[in-house]
Amino acid sequence: MPDRADTAATMLEVRDLHAFYGESHILHGVSLEVRRGEVVTLLGRNGAGKTTTLRAIMGMVGRRTGSIRFAGTELVGMAPHRVPRLGIGYVPEERGIFASLSTAENLMLPPVVREGGMSVEQIHTLFPNLRERGATQGTRLSGGEQQMLAIARILRTGAELILLDEPTEGLAPVIIDQIGVAVRRLKDRGFTIVLVEQNFRFAATIADRHYVMEEGHVVDMIPNDRLDASMDRLHARLGV
């Protein structure tokens, strides 16, 4: 057990997490910890298990063992639709915007799970691009707008922990900057964020700490302020 002060601040605690899709064993004992209000990234090459870690937290893998505790509640063994109701929001890779729903419907889709979510007006202030696009089919928005929509719909729900899977993937640098501004605002508002990123530069501007993953394990943890000192190590791991 970590010491008492630490547990009080710990929002998400993953211990020895194994995850399987059918016969294939994807995560081999992942352990990590996220404190309240922190932004933590999962870095690693393709196939290292970053996305699977997020999906395992949400209960979206075939089978999982080990322990995932969110604010003291054990998630392993919980029905998948109960997990988000504890206050965890999920922004999937490739954004997961529904083609058969309008932008407004996409925004209103996730049910409010707790008090204290952002109002639609606040969301429109944060993402002005989404204003006046309500009737547009969700998938007709630009890639950047779709990413904003994917984040925005979670902010309504009152979730305190947000799992963000590659929000910058396939976006132009200008848009990435906008997303970065938005994520930083969310941090300022007190959201706790787990961010999966390939874009290391983007991650470095936002995160407090970085977990480095390789072949289904966490192989390293680097606080952001020690990032420069750890560059060689990181380059070797990520092959960038």
Partner: peptide, 24 residues
Amino acid sequence: TRLGSRLRAATENPALVQAFGIDV
């Protein structure tokens, strides 16, 4: 309707709708 939008979404991607806390 709102319920209908959930239904359409779940038709498209049930796993994600579940990950929003809807009992698919």
